[in-house]
């Protein structure tokens, strides 16, 4: 066990965990922030996506010992982020979700995409969200909602 000082959603957090513990499980079980989801544990589904130093990152394969000072931002902070809020609003307007379990990860990837590429093409969307599984299959509405958020932010 070791103690780590983290920056999560702009706040300092101290956690004690085994160094191998993935960031995902620190968020979920130590910090009780369960908006970030466990889907596969091998970075093959994207449900656990958070932003680490602004980069969309699969938190299920990042050991807590490697996070360091880099700021971590999760779905719980998205309503305070202008792009995050626009994406969430577009998701609601387009009635994207079904079971909803993957959507935190989809939204975190969509926000990262729109911050880098405000007017994404279909190809950009497929590249940025290409590794996110939605088992319900809401992909058509995800595309529409990203384009809608892009319009709203323009």
């Amino acid at each position: 066990m070791a103690t780590y000082q983290l920056s999560v959603n702009g706040k300092r957090k101290e956690v004690t965990a085994d160094p191998s513990t993935p960031l995902l499980w620190v968020l979920r079980e130590e910090l009780k922030m369960t908006g970030t989801k466990y889907g596969c544990g091998v970075s093959a589904c994207g449900a656990c996506t958070v932003h680490v130093a602004g980069v969309a990152t699969r938190s299920c394969i990042v050991p807590i010992s490697l996070v360091g000072e880099r700021p971590v931002v999760t779905i719980e902070a998205m309503h305070d982020d202008p792009v995050g809020r626009a994406v969430q609003d577009a998701w609601v307007e387009k009635d994207v979700v079904q079971c909803g379990y993957c959507q935190s990860g989809q939204i975190m990837c969509a926000v990262a995409l729109l911050k880098a590429t405000p007017k994404p093409t279909d190809k950009n969307i497929e590249e940025s969200l290409g590794g996110n599984v939605c088992r319900c299959g809401t992909y058509v509405r995800i595309r529409e909602a990203i384009k809608r958020a892009s319009q709203q932010l323009a």
């Binding site: 970030t36 999760t74 969430q88 609601v92 979700v97």
Partner: peptide
């Protein structure tokens, strides 16, 4: 529109897990 949409978009909805 779905009643569970917003809570599934902001991470607040609690699933069994």
């Amino acid at each position: 529109r779905r009643l569970d949409s917003r809570s599934k978009c902001d991470g607040s909805l609690k699933f069994g897990l």
